[in-house]
Design a protein around this nucleic acid. Structure first.
Lengths: 227, 227
DNA sequence: CTATGATTCAAACGAACGTATGAATCATAG
DNA sequence: CTATGATTCATACGTTCGTTTGAATCATAG
């Protein structure tokens, strides 16, 4: 019984994860989900209550581990650095590297979940954004604090902005991997898929760290005083 | 007559732009649009043919100017640099700065259009992505070429990736300005809105250039040969 | 074996969706 | 002023949406 229940629930979650990634929340119907999962239409409302709750559960299933792992990694860095600030490259890797390495980990959602997450960060639906914001807040706050300590000469506002920029570059890098690839449409040498994934992490890391450590911007004319 | 027609068309486009930005394409109904525009429900199908065509017209109205301006700026840089490569900072400003300065230009769509564009780059809807890709291709190709010449020591594949990352950071910076602000939730000093916008451009430019000029990534073990 | 609670199922609900229609209204040309 | 073509309008069409319902089926406990 418990197995059947868990089975149906997981089949629904898997199908929903894939379809929400491919067509978005509004663009995916419950009939598509239950059809792809091979379960009855009413199963979603029975097991999750509503489409919204299903969406939240799709994320919670993956984010619980991700956020715990991110905190665990940061704890470990802090324990190993006895009092001194952690290197920015380690902090960035703890947050973004931990996320990106899910790509190879089908158990944790793989590329499907990564793309879903990347796209959802800019999703227009109100309840999704508030849910994600709430889910992320604690972890982001800890990483921000770590960056403040690691870069004492950089104004905090600047660090927050750059964290924002890093989030954007990362989410777009994974969400757009085959959507807006058309835009850039690299006639570049066609690295095969695995290559591309293996190399994405170091490539993105270099970019993020370069941006994080870039020279501070010069603001024109007025309003320079507060710096 | 022509005025009334143009008026209705523009009222629809304005309302659609705002609502698509706020709720997404799938999340916005034709009844919401016509209601907000103060026109009859059938007006959209009469003037645009379908909801999809309306969406395309919403973008074309803004992108036509943006793409022309980007090409114009690049042409000018090339003319002024007689033969020599253009500085990366100018190229980046030509592409991303030109975009971001729309924020202050209500005539060209202002923040509403910027947010819509940022969100749409990762939109799940198939036809939207193909439309945008087609609309962007020519301009992106010219800017890529300019970057290739400006950074002859950086492998082309790397430049293409970093262009991708810059696109992501930018679109997220504008799309998420009040959505995922919750995530970062800066208790930082509350710069007022105009300040924030004035400073966003130089802040983002510093970040983008830092990322673009970052040290090249080191790939682990195998597959380093092709570099 | 029987009873009980959990799960699945087919079927239907009302609401909202994008689109189509034909008459009414409008502005202009002759 | 009248005729013509463009625009607006109220209304309806057929689908699809998320959700609900009550009976059928299943697994386990007594």
């Amino acid at each position: 019984m418990a197995e059947s229940k868990a089975d149906t629930r997981e089949r629904i979650l898997d199908a929903a994860e894939r379809l929400f990634m491919a067509h978005g929340y509004e663009g995916t119907s419950m009939r598509q989900i239950t059809s792809e999962a091979g379960v009855n239409l009413a199963a979603i409302n029975y097991h999750f209550g509503s489409k919204e709750s299903l969406m939240q559960e799709v994320f919670r299933r993956r984010l619980d581990w991700l956020n715990e792992e991110r905190l665990r990694v940061l704890d470990q860095f802090e324990a190993e650095s006895d009092g001194k600030a952690i290197k920015p490259s380690l902090i960035v890797d703890g947050f973004f590297g931990t996320l990106l390495r899910i790509a190879d980990d089908e158990e944790r959602g793989g590329m499907t979940f990564l793309r879903l997450l990347g796209r959802t960060l800019t999703d227009p639906s109100e309840f999704i954004r508030t849910f994600l914001a709430h889910e992320y807040k604690a972890v982001v706050d800890r990483y921000k604090e770590a960056l403040f300590r690691a870069l004492p000469d950089v104004p905090k506002a600047e660090i927050v902005w750059r964290f924002h920029f890093m989030l954007g570059a990362t989410s777009y890098a994974i969400a757009g991997t085959d959507s807006l690839r058309l835009v850039t449409d690299w006639q570049i040498e066609a690295e095969d898929a695995t290559d591309r994934l293996d190399r994405l992490v170091p490539r993105l890391m270099s970019f993020l760290l370069g941006g994080l450590r870039a020279p501070l911007p010069q603001f024109s004319e007025a309003a320079v005083d507060s710096l």
